[in-house]
């Protein structure tokens, strides 16, 4: 039998000789070049930013390269407040609580919760998909898009996300993103994506579908000019405070402070038992 002759040759690729960034400029300390004497974010000294600008302004600057105008800053800050806590019933929050009560290293609580919040269902990946959907379809008539998508059959059971960021939650329209959308649209910083998303949500409302938190975040990120790839991490960042707070609330509490289902409520099917 002939054996494959797998020759391995290094590709002739030219790698950068140093790591490149346009975000952060570190000026070396004259006495120790491993330490930075001054740090500048897109040209602005970080200490000066700390003196003169808000957290939201600097967050926007970090990702966009320029400081926001007041309307943009207000829009982003409002979204940050709206998303600050997915709530104690949200699976990502429950993951943080679960880990905390079972004495997980507290430095892991946030990564654990954010991993649960990373998925395609109401998570970071859905935000990216929703930004893609909004960027692709928001030039079209929302009624036409809704009509087209409503022709698809929904799943036989469970919630239907007719498009990323839009759909049902526990069989109904989630009232919180709906109300938050009204609040955000009333702000001068809102743009055409948020408006289009609201019109689209209106059209699909007849089918008991509406805004989801991921769609709302996606629309605001689009209007503020964030890159689609930033959507996932930004969504996680904005939801992180609530996840951490709920996790920490259970730190050092006994495991009995959270439910642990008894055998009656933990139902193992016959098939799963020993054959």
């Amino acid at each position: 039998m002939n054996r494959p002759q797998n020759q391995v040759n290094k590709r002739d690729e030219k790698f950068a000789d140093r790591t490149v960034t346009k975000i952060w400029d570190e000026e070396p300390d004259p006495e120790n070049s491993y330490l930075a004497r001054h740090c500048r974010c897109h040209g602005y000294d970080i200490i000066e930013l700390a003196q003169k600008r808000s957290f939201v302004d600097v967050l926007f600057l970090l990702f966009q390269g320029e400081l926001p105008n007041p309307a943009q800053a207000r829009l982003l800050e409002t979204l940050m407040i709206v998303l600050i806590n997915p709530g104690p019933r949200h699976p990502a929050t429950r993951a943080a609580m679960n880990a905390s009560v079972s004495k997980t290293n507290s430095a892991h609580l946030l990564p654990i919760a954010l991993s649960v919040l990373s998925g395609t269902h109401l998570g970071a990946e859905e935000v990216v998909a929703a930004m893609r959907f909004l960027q692709k379809r928001s030039e079209e008539n929302p009624l036409k898009v809704a009509t087209e998508l409503l022709e698809n059959p929904g799943p036989p059971e469970g919630d239907w996300h007719i498009a990323p960021g839009f759909g049902s939650r526990f069989g109904g329209i989630d009232p919180l993103p709906r109300e938050a959308a009204d609040l955000l649209i009333a702000l001068p910083g809102h743009g055409k994506t948020l408006q289009w998303g609201d019109n689209f949500a209106e059209e699909i409302g007849q089918m008991n579908l509406g805004w989801l938190s991921t769609g709302l975040a996606a629309a605001v990120f689009c209007d503020l000019g964030f890159h689609r790839l930033a959507g996932a991490g930004l969504f996680q960042l904005l939801c992180a405070p609530g996840l951490l707070a709920h996790g920490l609330e259970l730190a050092d509490k006994p495991i009995t402070d959270m439910p642990f289902l008894d055998e009656i409520h933990y139902v193992i099917t016959k098939e799963a038992k020993k054959r």
Partner: peptide, 12 residues
């Protein structure tokens, strides 16, 4: 349970 919670949210 954290695996289950991640699964129910379609995390990878």
């Amino acid at each position: 349970q954290i695996g289950s919670l991640a699964g129910t949210m379609n995390s990878t």
